[in-house]
Amino acid sequence: MENCKEVVTPIAINCLIDVDEVGQQVDSTKYRGLIGSLLYLTASRPDIQSSVCLCARFQSNPKESHYKATKRILMYLKGTINVGLWFPSDSKITLSGFSDSDYTGSKLDRKNTSGTCHLLGSSLIAWNSKKQARVTLSTIEA
């Protein structure tokens, strides 16, 4: 992957990773090792957290499509080698927070994923991402 083409996003915008029943099987030990390494890296690179966790869902039965998605994360990392968490000492101390949700973003179970992040000055101090527990069948139930 040292000579790979660099990409600007860790996962393709129109890519919906789901259970691949007919895809080519890949070595699960190699796939789990790659996912484990990427999960370790998310401590300093929260920008890949969502993509890595999405790929980690398929560790028990990885297919070629899942492996290609993890390779794309590596191509993204190659192009953003100088990106990571940075905590400068001279930043202005203001607390701010942001949130977002992707309504029925999961193709598998139609559940929403929402997330928040909190910044102290220009430094990220807390963030989360959560998939909803239930799906309603109509807006009246909601």
Rank of each mutant, 00 (worst) to 15 (best):
N3M: 06
N3R: 06
C4M: 07
C4G: 10
E6H: 07
T9K: 08
T9V: 10
P10S: 05
I11G: 01
A12N: 10
N14G: 03
N14I: 05
N14A: 10
C15W: 09
C15V: 07
L16I: 01
I17D: 01
I17L: 15
D18H: 12
V19R: 13
V19E: 15
D20Q: 06
E21Q: 10
V22K: 15
G23S: 09
G23F: 02
Q25Y: 12
V26E: 14
V26P: 15
D27N: 15
T29L: 11
Y31D: 07
Y31L: 08
L34N: 04
I35W: 06
G36H: 15
S37M: 05
S37Q: 07
S37N: 10
L38Q: 12
L39V: 12
L39T: 11
L39W: 13
L39R: 14
Y40P: 00
T42V: 06
A43R: 11
S44D: 13
S44T: 15
R45T: 04
R45K: 12
P46Y: 14
Q49D: 00
Q49I: 00
Q49L: 04
Q49Y: 02
Q49N: 03
L54N: 05
L54T: 09
A56K: 01
F58L: 04
F58H: 07
F58K: 04
F58Y: 15
F58A: 01
S60G: 02
N61T: 11
N61R: 11
N61F: 07
P62V: 02
K63L: 01
K63V: 01
E64H: 09
E64D: 11
Y67N: 03
Y67K: 00
K68M: 05
A69D: 10
T70V: 15
K71D: 13
R72S: 00
I73G: 06
I73V: 15
L74D: 08
L74K: 02
L74I: 06
M75E: 13
M75S: 11
M75V: 00
Y76N: 06
Y76P: 07
Y76C: 02
L77Q: 05
G79Q: 13
T80M: 04
N82E: 14
G84F: 13
L85S: 02
L85N: 03
L85C: 02
F87M: 08
P88H: 03
S89G: 12
S91T: 14
K92T: 04
I93C: 09
I93A: 09
T94C: 03
G97L: 09
F98P: 13
F98Y: 15
S99W: 14
D100A: 10
D100C: 09
D100F: 09
S101G: 00
D102C: 03
Y103D: 02
Y103P: 00
T104Y: 08
G105W: 10
G105V: 05
S106R: 11
R110Q: 11
K111Y: 08
K111A: 04
N112F: 13
T113N: 08
G115N: 10
T116K: 01
T116L: 08
T116V: 05
T116A: 04
C117H: 09
C117P: 01
H118P: 00
L119T: 09
L120H: 03
G121E: 14
S122V: 07
L124D: 09
I125P: 00
W127H: 09
W127G: 05
N128V: 02
N128Y: 15
S129D: 01
S129G: 06
K131H: 06
Q132N: 08
A133D: 10
R134Q: 11
V135F: 09
T136E: 12
L137F: 13
E141F: 07
E141A: 06
